[in-house]
Amino acid sequence: MADSTSSADPDVPAAETALADADPLYREGVVELLGVIAYGELSAFERLAEDAALAPSLRDKAELAQMANVELSHFLGLRDKLEALGIDPYEAMAPFEDTFSRFHAKTAPSDWLEGLVKAYVGDGLAADFYREIAAYLDVDIRSLVLDSLAGTGDSAFVVTRVREAIEADPRVAGRLALWGRRLMGEALSQAQLVAAEHDGLTAVLVGGADRVSGMDLAAIGRMFARMTENHAARMAELGLAS
């Protein structure tokens, strides 16, 4: 458990003060956001570790294992920060187990390449959504959230391997492009469900519970448009049409 007075993590005391002084619904939203991000990091670790077992070469296994290790490191750091804020990380994560189970059940990759694309664009979409919500948090809490999303492992490895596969067999591109579109649709659907099912997150987004600023319907539409644009850029980097 991290020490909330440690100089090695200067953002935690400020975040702790901001959260302690916040109205209850806003605090609920922050806890929900940190909980869903923590669960996402742990889920990403588990998925990448499973993908590593299916990798076609030792080099690929090592690369994916390294990516999984980064995700685990993110989870452990966020777990410690939640504890420093006086929050039980596992209680904060528990409400999102069904959410992630639904998403992964609908987006189970059929082969190793689809797993790579899911790791790259799926995790990117989730991070975009959490960053958008973080924009409406107090500065100290926002810093904590953004720090927990910083870095996703060696994404250059994924780009290289997908582009190599397309070069070896151009027919792969069409299949993976369709897969990327499916991931996009499911990710946006799950993001909307997460916001709708958790009152605190909704309050943060729309400025509820006496928060000064928030999103109106037009702003929410622009948020999803930005997420779509970012997805298209990631697909292009992979050499795939969006």
Rank of each mutant, 00 (worst) to 15 (best):
G29S: 07
G29P: 11
V30K: 00
E32K: 02
E32M: 00
G35K: 00
G35P: 01
G35L: 00
G35Q: 01
V36G: 01
I37W: 12
I37A: 02
A38G: 11
A38W: 02
Y39A: 00
E41L: 05
A44M: 13
L48V: 03
L54A: 14
A55I: 07
A55Q: 03
P56E: 10
P56H: 09
L58G: 08
K61V: 08
A65Y: 04
Q66T: 03
Q66D: 09
M67L: 09
N69W: 14
V70G: 11
V70S: 07
V70C: 13
E71Y: 12
E71I: 15
H74S: 12
L76E: 01
L76W: 04
G77L: 06
G77V: 02
L78K: 11
K81T: 09
K81F: 01
K81L: 00
E83M: 15
E83I: 15
A84D: 12
L85P: 12
L85Q: 15
L85D: 10
G86K: 07
D88Y: 01
D88G: 03
A92L: 09
A92G: 06
A94L: 05
A94G: 07
P95T: 07
F96H: 02
F96I: 02
T99C: 00
F103R: 11
F103A: 11
F103W: 10
H104S: 13
H104K: 13
A105R: 06
K106A: 14
K106M: 06
T107A: 14
P109M: 06
W112V: 10
W112M: 06
W112S: 05
